[in-house]
Design a protein around this nucleic acid. Sequence first.
DNA 1: GTCCTTGTTGAACAACCGTATAGTTTGCCC
DNA 2: GGGCAAACTATACGGTTGTTCAACAAGGAC
Lengths: 195, 195
Amino acid sequence: MRRYTRLDAAQRRAAVVEAALSCIARGGIQDFTVDKVCAEAGISRGLIGHHFGSMSALLAAAYGHMYDQVALTAVSASADQSRLGRVLALLFSPDLFNRDALNIWLTLWGQASVTPELRDEHRRQYAEYRRNMTEAIAEAATANGRHVDAAALALTLICLIDGLGVQHCVEPATMSGDLALQNCRDLLLPYVGPF
Amino acid sequence: MRRYTRLDAAQRRAAVVEAALSCIARGGIQDFTVDKVCAEAGISRGLIGHHFGSMSALLAAAYGHMYDQVALTAVSASADQSRLGRVLALLFSPDLFNRDALNIWLTLWGQASVTPELRDEHRRQYAEYRRNMTEAIAEAATANGRHVDAAALALTLICLIDGLGVQHCVEPATMSGDLALQNCRDLLLPYVGPF
DNA sequence: GTCCTTGTTGAACAACCGTATAGTTTGCCC
DNA sequence: GGGCAAACTATACGGTTGTTCAACAAGGAC
């Protein structure tokens, strides 16, 4: 009888990352431990070291996976509205705007503000995030014949999005995805007009 | 020779809380350990158990201390502007809007979203926070003869404030206190008018 | 000066942490 | 069906975790 099934290295890595994120969603960074992640993934303790080398490397991989997931969902978004409208609808869809996912983000931010490697990666990712958002805002504004400081507005918008996420994470009843989306639209409307 | 100096229980508790917050500011929840807090406070390991019973109780006390600190600073704020203007100027003053303090908040939010006791306390405190902000907004709006949904606007504003704090925490160069304050004023201006 | 409350120490404890490593099993290749 | 790379298990290890507890000492009361 088979005692275990081998997986391709890439597949196993993905499975372990998934398990790590589940643990973080459930109990924050306190539940990001060798024992708990391995139990969640159904593997033995040694495998994390074999595939990732260390727990901090696994955390970095998990961080990257979160961004990949957003980018992946972005591709499949419907195209029947403006780019800005699409991005916002995506960010507040149940797939991304839910307690588990936002709890993971909150935990990762806390780690990023303390761990140099994670912080650098965060800044790289956020720079691209800001660039994309700036473009989307500029598009919407020019489509309405308006002139705005798109970069500044994008930064503000991103901060609001993050804050709405924190609120949903700690007190979901007060901040649904729909309400959060509406808040963002209200912020943008006076500047870029309808989109 | 004296081997140590006794402190009043209240004073010692305050000193330990202060040390705990220093540790959290430096290294997040990972540095919130018995050894590190005691070293920071210059006391022996047994004293935390004696004064707080457990580390989670110490964390709850530290959480409360953070709110007390904001309330205390609020009392000493100058009165030469509207209440809303005062509150915002206070929240983005260097005393409250700095990396150490915001790193503590970020860490505490992450814990609150995972620990039931902390989460309940957070909700209580935020309910009052929201109430105060709603009143301040309503005052400013009526002073300008405008009518707004003050409660909804207060919730949005608070989320923006939190998001700006996260941004400053992880990437201080992109979000100064002055810029954060301006962002909040820009959010409010279209609704409540000048304040 | 002696007592007594209580703030404080320091060590002991079991449980858990992340990492390293030696040995086993799997499944593909030839 | 034998060989082989590598995915995987299982255990051991030193260090750190939070908590407990008996003994000590400081400083006011009297």
